[in-house]
Design a protein around this nucleic acid. Structure first.
Lengths: 232, 232
DNA sequence: TTCAATACTTGATAAATGTCAAGCATTGGA
DNA sequence: TCCAATGCTTGACATTTATCAAGTATTGAA
């Protein structure tokens, strides 16, 4: 891997605290590649040979069964994916595909496991990251099981609003059909759900969202940190 | 904690490989308690002061929002719960309550974090356990998003059957209303779902399940290791 | 700029799931 | 042993969500 890419990766929580020696050892076997949009990076069921790091662009994680498919998450820079499969040396549970043109680092899983055993700081970082991932899925599970699709959309919009520093207007970061799948509904239903939020001051124009009265929407959405705050 | 309880805990994957010294250090601050059925052990949102280990009995993990409640998992001996909250020193995302009379070990979270930093074997075990937990939730998420309630029940029964070494008859380990909630449906719907599986050779009598023709049920359920095999 | 491909929306309808109410079955004290 | 409490089942109905089909809007490449 060219050393010019090191700083981006070094900046990740996962790699900030480890020793230079171990970091360099990890990087030696790794490489960075540019991918066009819509490229399949991994398929669920494949052996987990590499830990992936998204440096630019975005990657969608999805799963299929019996001819159906669902979007599980979208990974944005700078973060890793399929850490758990790498750690366990087990097959991927999700497929990954670039959404847009993306720059991705590939770190051999065996190297990750080796360095884990000798660098306590890296070990600590990995376990923190994994715990974070675990808690994110649990939150998402609660969202799915406890809320209707309208409530899920309302809370999604409020989470996005927080990402944009509480701005009253912002752009959706996902295509609507992808968002629908992520929220566990059909694209048709998402269209209707947006209409269903009009009485609470939500306006939609293409990807542009306007939230007229945040409090009004919050009274309906009833967000809670134990589902909606991905930082804890 | 009485030393007589040590072996049960030592037998857990999480604790087998660590040094005696560190294990004893962990145990010193811990204690074991017997709880009657239906006792609230932790509430979601509480700070995570202890890592819990179920030695006997069983514990249900659940979550609530806006007056609704859902069963997230049932923990059986010998295993831990709320490991992720302990590691992150973050609030619990789920509540826990004994289902039956249970014997539970409580290990101070701070001690777990301290020993993690000094015992590489323990660190490795924790990260493996966490990766396992993460992958379990992802599988459960796929189950929920990709399958109908009838398909979820069919696959649940096949998973239970495997637990009982493929026996054609076995007892449900959960109350039906708990099972319904775990599978993301109402008790009424679960009743109807059992009827819906009759054409595939499933017979129900109270908690007693008979699967007349496993192949028949499998043709309907279409189980896949990437959702249904909790060992990978 | 044009046009074909793709995404999105809408309405009509169907299927899945939830709710309510009532009755039956089981269970665990008194 | 009895019976009250709880869980389970069933039917009728309501709601939610999905499907299908058609039309509109948007996008990207020639």
């Amino acid at each position: 891997m060219p050393e010019s890419d090191y700083p981006d990766i070094r900046g990740l929580h996962l790699f900030t605290e480890m020793s230079d020696e171990h970091f360099n050892a990890l990087m030696r076997g790794s490489y960075v590649q540019n991918f066009p949009p819509q490229i399949d990076l991994i398929a669920e069921g494949d052996p987990s040979d590499f830990l992936h790091v998204v440096l630019t662009g975005s990657v969608e994680l999805s799963s299929s069964w019996n001819g159906r498919e669902t979007s599980m998450a979208t990974v944005r820079p700078v973060s890793t994916f399929i850490l758990a499969a790498t750690i366990k040396d087990a097959p991927y549970l999700m497929s990954a595909k670039t959404v847009e043109k993306s720059r991705i680092a590939l770190i051999p899983s065996q190297d990750v496991r080796n360095v884990f055993d000798v660098d306590p700081n890296f070990a600590r970082a990995i376990v923190t990251e994994l715990a974070q991932c675990y808690r994110s899925v649990v939150k998402s599970q609660k969202d799915l099981k406890l809320r209707t699709s309208l409530e899920r959309l309302a809370n999604y919009l409020l989470r996005q609003q927080i990402k944009f520093d509480g701005a009253a207007e912002f752009e959706l970061q996902l295509e609507k059909r992808r968002l629908a799948s992520f929220l566990g509904m059909t694209p048709e239903n998402l269209s209707r759900a947006f209409k269903g939020l009009q009485p609470y001051g939500v306006k939609v124009n293409g990807n542009h969202i306007t939230i007229k009265d945040q409090d009004d929407l919050m009274r309906f959405a009833k967000p809670t940190p134990l589902i909606d705050d991905y930082s804890i």
